[in-house]
Design a protein around this nucleic acid. Structure first.
Lengths: 246, 246
DNA sequence: ACAGTACGTTGATACGCATCAATAAAGTTG
DNA sequence: CAACTTTATTGATGCGTATCAACGTACTGT
């Protein structure tokens, strides 16, 4: 509950006068690699709309690709639907993270993006981003990096699915979310999981039941405590070991 | 055997005077989106070395990232080694395909790349590629696309590992390799698998034994015929169904 | 506060693939 | 071409997670 308040602060300063230069996320988000004057140019093309409600979509698979998105607060899940109608959750996105880049290649989004909580979002029209990248080498470089890092992330996830047990997968997810919270100055050990058990299972290639059972097992082992969506990582070290994060 | 000869032709014209403009792969490789004069500029930065022998590495995980690579002939596998020493094959690369882009994000390669056959390779120093992308919008655009498409590929693979059975996975790989052969004007139904059963299993999140058994099952069902590394896809349609490719 | 509904937990059973083990075939080297 | 090594096949068994089913708990709107 306190966590939620902390999150809310991030899009509080009435949103009207939020900009990249004063955004508290600018050290981990797109402006990361930019000089002050470059940030201003980025800011000119960033669009900030009204908060997105829980369940609303930012974009849907197959739609014309227009923009990439930065999460300012809340949490987004991306998922793709296969030809035979099955859904695969491909990622969870937290404040400071960028999504939508899978649309570049085919000029249409390869996945759908849905808010798991009320979220504040920055929209960055891609054609303007491209222009800017042509002018600012550091912007181009950073953008190449972003794309490349997403590839590396996905490959890590492939390895996770291919090689790791249910316990290892879930531990890895908890450790990952923990690290991403810590990066934003929030607690590394206590947070709310914005996604359902179903989403977790889908993301990790497991059933709801297995996710539930592993949570219970972790709790019995004293690694975590969990009540609904609120987790506390009691033994983060052991979780990291389980997740093979050294 | 005939297949090998066809492959060899692709890097035959004595290699000394190969360039992007006359390369028979230029319609599917990097020059794809470029005008004639732009191809010349690309050609200036492409380096073509001696053939890489089977088993040799193009780069290794953790090494300084310098270049991306295009396969001109042969076949390359990419794999990453996790902290706990396990290997994960992350991709197979055939002529006309680009690899090494996972190194951009961290300035070091996130995976290793090893030749599965004697291969001819084009090396493209990345910093020169970046410069060129700053000057040629179509180059920048194409490169963004390439990166994005690799993300989409990886996400498809995640779905495969997360949702599909051994048979579906192996069928999907066969269909994918078939399509990539066809794209280069080679037979869609008859080709040599350059990788070992171990590599296939590793890539698909299966054991060697399971791969072997599924091959045998496919053969008994009359979907394929297989002798060592030479496959013939007898019923490509049914394989596509099995792979959920519609 | 209450019914209604979605979401989560827990238990019993089944099944697909991993593992272990033995053999066979292919590739390599002197 | 024989001896060796590596790679692939086939069979027997076991384990981890899916599936099916029942129940419990949290959220929703009136």
């Amino acid at each position: 509950m306190q966590l939620m308040k902390a999150e809310l602060k991030q899009h509080c300063p009435n949103d009207a006068n939020v900009n990249c230069a004063n955004c508290r996320l600018n050290s981990i988000c797109l402006p990361l690699a930019l000089r002050q004057d470059e940030i201003t140019q980025l800011d000119d093309i960033v669009q900030r709309g009204r908060p997105v409600q829980k369940g609303q979509h930012l974009y849907r698979q197959g739609e014309n690709f227009q923009s990439i998105y930065a999460v300012r607060s809340g949490a987004i899940k991306a998922y793709s639907t296969t030809d035979d109608g099955e859904e695969q959750v491909t990622g969870f996105y937290f404040p400071g993270e960028i999504l939508g880049m899978d649309g570049i290649g085919q000029n249409r989004y390869a996945s759908s993006a849905q808010a798991m909580d009320v979220s504040a979002i920055c929209e960055i029209p891609f054609h303007r981003m491209e222009e800017l990248s042509g002018k600012l080498p550091s912007m181009q470089k950073h953008f190449f990096k972003l794309l490349s890092q997403e590839i590396v992330e996905d490959q890590r996830h492939i390895t996770l699915l291919s090689k790791n047990s249910a316990e290892e997968r879930l531990a890895a997810l908890l450790v990952s979310i923990s690290a991403r919270h810590a990066r934003r100055g929030l607690s590394a050990t206590s947070f709310r999981l914005p996604m359902s058990r179903g989403d977790i299972g889908n993301f990790l290639g497991l059933t709801i039941e297995t996710v539930s059972r592993v949570f219970t097992r972790f709790a019995k082992q004293g690694l975590i405590s969990i009540a609904n969506k609120d987790v506390t990582l009691i033994d983060l070290e052991k979780l990291k070991e389980t997740a093979n994060v050294f």
